[in-house]
Computed example of a mutant assay.
Amino acid sequence: MVNAYQRKKDPEHIRKLILENTMILAAEKGVSGVSIQTVAEMAGVTKGGVFHHFPNKKALLEAMLHFVMSQIDAETEKLICADTESYGCFTRAYIEITLNANATAVSRYWDAISMTMLTEPDLNAIWAQWLEKRLSIHADTDQSLQLKILRYAADGVWLTGFAEMKLTEDFIKMKQELISRTYPASSQSFNGL
């Protein structure tokens, strides 16, 4: 580990490192597991170094959420751009990100945002604003009640998977089934759920 006092100053890199480590703690332990001291140790900076960028824990958590949401937004956009079907494109991206079972950055981002929302309801406004903005952008393609139900179902599958702390074949099958129901032809037979 590099001595925090001798490292070349790179405030943007340090800020990002602090936010990434905050995200890791939030994903693993929820908001209560995030302490300034632990974040500082993980980022290889002093506690004062954390306070230099964020005046308190609340500001750190808010900045972490904005950071996470920007990463999720970029991944959502990438998935939407790669989608060949416009109907339900946001919902498919949402399900893909929500139920990303791989140990990727996206799944860590989703875990961090979800754990924060579960353990710190005061910060839900950041998430709600993002979702509202996305739904507004995709009003023509993703406003149907069927697609809304599928997004809620994905949230429920994620929560069940989180509570069980293991991924099962059923988890993967549910993800595939939810995504398959986002296409226009399947919306016709949605009543057969």
Score class of each variant (00 low, 15 high):
residue 70 S to F: 10
residue 70 S to R: 13
residue 71 Q to K: 15
residue 72 I to P: 02
residue 73 D to V: 06
residue 73 D to K: 10
residue 73 D to E: 14
residue 74 A to E: 06
residue 74 A to Y: 04
residue 74 A to M: 05
residue 75 E to N: 12
residue 76 T to P: 03
residue 77 E to M: 06
residue 78 K to V: 07
residue 78 K to D: 14
residue 78 K to S: 15
residue 79 L to T: 09
residue 79 L to W: 09
residue 79 L to F: 09
residue 82 A to S: 06
residue 83 D to A: 09
residue 84 T to C: 01
residue 84 T to A: 09
residue 85 E to W: 08
residue 85 E to L: 13
residue 87 Y to W: 10
residue 87 Y to E: 12
residue 88 G to H: 03
residue 88 G to T: 02
residue 88 G to E: 00
residue 89 C to Y: 02
residue 90 F to K: 07
residue 90 F to W: 06
residue 91 T to N: 02
residue 92 R to Q: 01
residue 93 A to C: 12
residue 93 A to P: 14
residue 94 Y to I: 02
residue 94 Y to C: 08
residue 94 Y to E: 07
residue 94 Y to V: 02
residue 96 E to G: 04
residue 98 T to N: 03
residue 99 L to Q: 05
residue 100 N to D: 13
residue 100 N to H: 03
residue 101 A to E: 14
residue 101 A to W: 11
residue 101 A to N: 12
residue 104 T to E: 13
residue 104 T to W: 09
residue 105 A to C: 00
residue 105 A to T: 09
residue 106 V to A: 13
residue 106 V to Q: 14
residue 106 V to D: 12
residue 106 V to F: 07
residue 108 R to H: 05
residue 109 Y to G: 01
residue 109 Y to T: 00
residue 110 W to V: 15
residue 112 A to D: 08
residue 112 A to I: 04
residue 112 A to L: 08
residue 115 M to G: 11
residue 117 M to D: 04
